[in-house]
């Protein structure tokens, strides 16, 4: 299911603002009880979508987040744990923060699922409270009794969990996209192991998008990240690269370990950033 098919309100505020918050919390639930034929996933996805209108430039990132969430929401629905209150979500974010800047730790799908399960649990309790208010014959918009505040707390917990999940996925995706610029289109195995499937797909798609853009404008954007002083540089090979590498002037070079070369900067750059060569200065 593509989110573009849903008729989504594009101008909704972020779920922090006081007024819209409660309305948002009630809207999907009312929709649910009024129309039982509507699949529950749609409502969940709606909740996810509300905070951000999709921008075309963020399409790949958005796809990633969307895929992850729809996958996990289905999981979470079946395995509702008896979580007490709202502590797991921040753990996920803290785990991301504990890694060094620009580095990735393994995707913690276990914790991710727990947080989603927590959301489902809150969602159930929220529904039962709203139902209780309705059964007492009170108007949901105006009744400000204990049940209302209980429901509010559950709603806020869901919004918070959602923010943590979004931030986790979003920031990881950002690190991943930066890797593309730093070390090129092929990720080394030790980084690949830390990604989940959706992230790998995201990286592939992003790489493809960048390639097709570069071939359209006929400029290789990934080279010369440091402004060059000279088009040629001296380098020493420090790791096994292999023989018969074809350079941009259609000559082949033999990069044996510890050999020194005088190369076009653009040819050497990818090997240097992958740690297979080093620049000789002085």
């Amino acid at each position: 299911m593509k989110y573009t098919n849903l008729s989504l309100p594009l101008n909704l505020q972020i779920p922090n603002s006081p007024k819209t918050c409660m309305e948002m919390c009630i809207q999907p639930i009312l929709g649910n009880s009024a129309d039982p034929s509507k699949p529950a996933e749609v409502l969940d996805n709606q909740l996810i979508m509300e905070s951000k209108a999709p921008l075309p430039c963020l399409q790949p990132a958005f796809d990633l987040i969307f895929n992850l969430f729809s996958a996990f929401f289905r999981l979470g629905r079946d395995s509702v744990s008896n979580c007490s209150v709202l502590r797991q979500a921040c753990q996920l974010v803290k785990e991301f923060a504990s890694g060094e800047k620009g580095q990735l730790v393994s995707f913690n799908s276990e914790l991710f699922e727990q947080v989603v399960a927590e959301c489902s649990q809150h969602h159930l309790e929220l529904q039962s409270l709203i139902r209780k208010i309705q059964e007492e014959g009170l108007d949901i918009q105006t009744a400000k009794n204990a049940d209302h505040y209980g429901a509010l707390i559950h709603h806020l917990a869901i919004v918070r969990n959602k923010r943590c999940l979004m931030a986790y996925v979003y920031n990881r995706a950002e690190v991943l996209r930066n890797l593309l610029w730093k070390i090129g289109h092929v990720l080394p195995q030790e980084i690949k192991e830390k990604l989940c499937y959706a992230e790998e797909e995201h990286f592939k798609k992003h790489s493809r998008a960048l390639n097709s853009y570069m071939s359209k404008v006929m400029v290789n954007l990934t080279v010369d990240m440091v402004p060059p002083k000279d088009p040629y540089i001296k380098v020493r090979v420090i790791d096994d690269i292999g023989e018969g590498i074809i350079l941009s002037d259609d000559k082949t070079a033999n990069f044996a370990p510890h050999s020194m070369h005088f190369l076009k900067r653009t040819d050497a750059e990818q090997f240097i950033s992958q740690g297979k060569m080093e620049e000789i200065t002085g």
Partner: peptide
């Protein structure tokens, strides 16, 4: 002065 272009920081730590 010195090398202006270096290995990506993600890999150098490893």
């Amino acid at each position: 002065g010195g090398p202006r272009f270096q290995i990506a920081s993600v890999l150098s730590r490893k």
